[in-house]
């Protein structure tokens, strides 16, 4: 356990936090880099997912493609892209985008596809155009599911961004690989603890966001449902 004590001592030493190679700078970079990757993936995947969910077309293709992308080993993709583009930040960015697309895409088409078709028909009956239906009805209702997809994408990217240091990128992985190369296990362990802490904090933040984006109308409907079903305890009410 003294290894953990050493690791924590390194993390808690204020001298290690400052400067361009300090913990603060690397932590910040790790966070901003990961969120940018997910944002870029969302720009690609959200519109495609929304259209698939809205039309119901191409759903099988999307399932197969995102399943296939999931089977791709990220480390392999990362080093292959790094050999092609040279070391630095662009290769990890692209490789991690590929990792982030499947969960975002799945959240988008599952969320939009699960919106009650009667609601969509009602919107159409009120004279909304298809674009309006997607933007004003389906996306808001699908937002919690979409947020769930983004949440798992963020978690995977934060975890895997550690590997970016393997191909010369910055971030918390720098300490991890420095520790591995110099056989400084406490340093490697300290880096691991920082990445784990960052991932857990982000998971908590996104779990909160996921709850926050439930549209007010849905919350209200859920509450009335609960009130209505309370007096009669029969299972029929649940149908």
């Amino acid at each position: 356990m003294s290894l953990f004590a050493e690791a924590f001592a390194w993390i808690l030493d204020p001298a290690n936090w400052v400067g361009p190679d300090g913990i603060a700078a690397n932590l910040w970079f790790h966070l901003v880099f990961s969120l940018s990757v997910v944002a870029a993936a969302a720009v690609v995947a959200l519109p495609i997912g929304a259209v698939i969910g809205h039309t119901g077309r191409g759903r099988e293709t999307a399932v197969v493609v995102s399943g296939g992308l999931r089977a791709l080993p990220t480390l392999g993709l990362l080093v292959l892209v790094a050999l092609a583009l040279g070391v630095g930040i662009l290769a990890p960015f692209l490789a991690l985008m590929v990792l982030a697309i499947p969960p975002v895409l799945a959240g988008a088409y599952a969320g939009v596809g699960a919106v009650d078709r009667r609601t969509v028909d009602a919107a159409r009956g009120m004279g909304m155009t298809e674009a309006q239906i997607i933007a004003k009805v389906e996306l808001p209702l699908a937002l919690p599911t979409i947020m769930g997809g983004i949440r798992s994408a963020v978690l995977q990217v934060v975890a895997t961004a550690t590997l970016a240091a393997y191909v010369g990128g910055p971030g918390l992985g720098t300490y991890l690989f420095l520790g591995l190369q110099t056989r400084d296990y406490p340093l490697t362990l300290a880096a691991s603890i920082l990445v784990i802490a960052l991932a857990l904090v982000l998971d908590g933040v996104f779990a909160g966001l996921q709850r926050l984006v439930v549209p007010a109308g849905v919350v209200a409907a859920r509450d009335t449902d609960r009130l209505r079903s309370r007096p009669s305890r029969s299972g029929a009410a649940a149908g």
């Binding site: 953990f4 978690l155 975890a159 691991s192 784990i196 998971d203």
Partner: peptide
């Protein structure tokens, strides 16, 4: 299970031996 899955694998490979 949710928390466990949120922990990145590489850091866990390193922390577990400790």
């Amino acid at each position: 299970a949710g928390i466990l899955y949120a922990i990145p694998s590489l850091p866990l490979f390193i922390a577990l031996p400790g």
